[in-house]
């Protein structure tokens, strides 16, 4: 059974991808295709995690950060649309690198949806938060991210990008109606939420970038791990 697992999974993936392409080209039905593309973006990064040897400390560190990101909505329950998840993912990636950032973002999305309910949005959230972590990790050594303003702009931009990506799966359900007006309508309707997200990112990064990076740096030394890259 174990022997056949990987060929079986690959065969299944190819099969579903084929179906998705057929549906997309024959019927202009893009939902399935979008999921396949998402999976194609997410899977290689998870495969990397599977492939490399993992110390127990690394694993625990990633799990703790994901879980903290997942419960971070709790203290702000009283303040609507203030969610520090993105800010936490950015800071973690800033300290621990792109791969860790991606994993923390994606797992945080998956885990928090286990408590808030899975839905068609789960893979999209995993993708968005994962990408926030990934990009923040990639850029962490650039002068741009090192500067305070650069990091704030990064958080602001991702606040909107996050909302836009989340709009995609909704727009995709209307392939026939696709037009710039429709996209504009969707983005206008979500503008308030995206703005709140972007501003809270900026705020969180502004006030706590110092405090949190200090804590994370301290533990990076203490764990003595994840320094490569």
């Amino acid at each position: 059974m174990v022997k056949f697992r990987f060929p079986l999974l690959i065969a299944l993936a190819v099969f579903v991808a084929g179906l998705a392409l057929t549906a997309a080209f024959k019927d202009r039905h893009y939902m399935l295709l979008s999921l396949v593309l998402l999976a194609a973006a997410l899977v290689p990064l998870f495969v990397r995690l599977e492939r490399r040897p993992l110390e127990s400390r690394e694993l625990v560190l990633l799990a703790v950060l994901s879980a903290v990101a997942a419960v971070s909505r709790v203290p702000f329950a009283a303040l609507p649309s203030v969610k520090p998840v993105s800010a936490i993912v950015i800071l973690s990636a800033y300290v621990f690198g792109a791969e860790a950032g991606f994993i923390i973002g994606a797992v945080a999305a998956l885990v928090s949806n286990i408590y808030f309910g899975q839905g068609p949005w789960t893979p999209w959230q995993m993708f968005s938060w994962g990408m926030i972590g990934l990009t923040a990790g990639w850029l962490r050594h650039t002068r741009w991210m090192r500067s305070r303003a650069g990091m704030l702009i990064f958080g602001f931009v991702w606040g909107f990008l996050f909302g836009w990506i989340m709009n995609v799966w909704y727009i995709i359900s209307l392939p026939e109606a696709f037009s710039w007006q429709l996209a504009a309508a969707a983005y206008v309707s979500s503008f308030y939420f995206d703005l709140a997200h972007a501003l809270s990112n900026v705020f969180f990064l502004a006030i706590l970038a110092g405090g949190w990076t200090k804590v994370l740096e301290r533990f990076r030394k203490k764990y003595g791990l994840l320094q490569q890259e």
Binding site: V64, P75, L79, V215
Partner: peptide
């Protein structure tokens, strides 16, 4: 908002310490 993040920071510090 700042206080909320301070609470999370306490949680983070404590939890990372115990996670060792």
């Amino acid at each position: 908002m700042r206080d909320g993040m301070t609470l999370l920071k306490v949680l983070l510090t404590w939890s990372l310490e115990e996670a060792l």
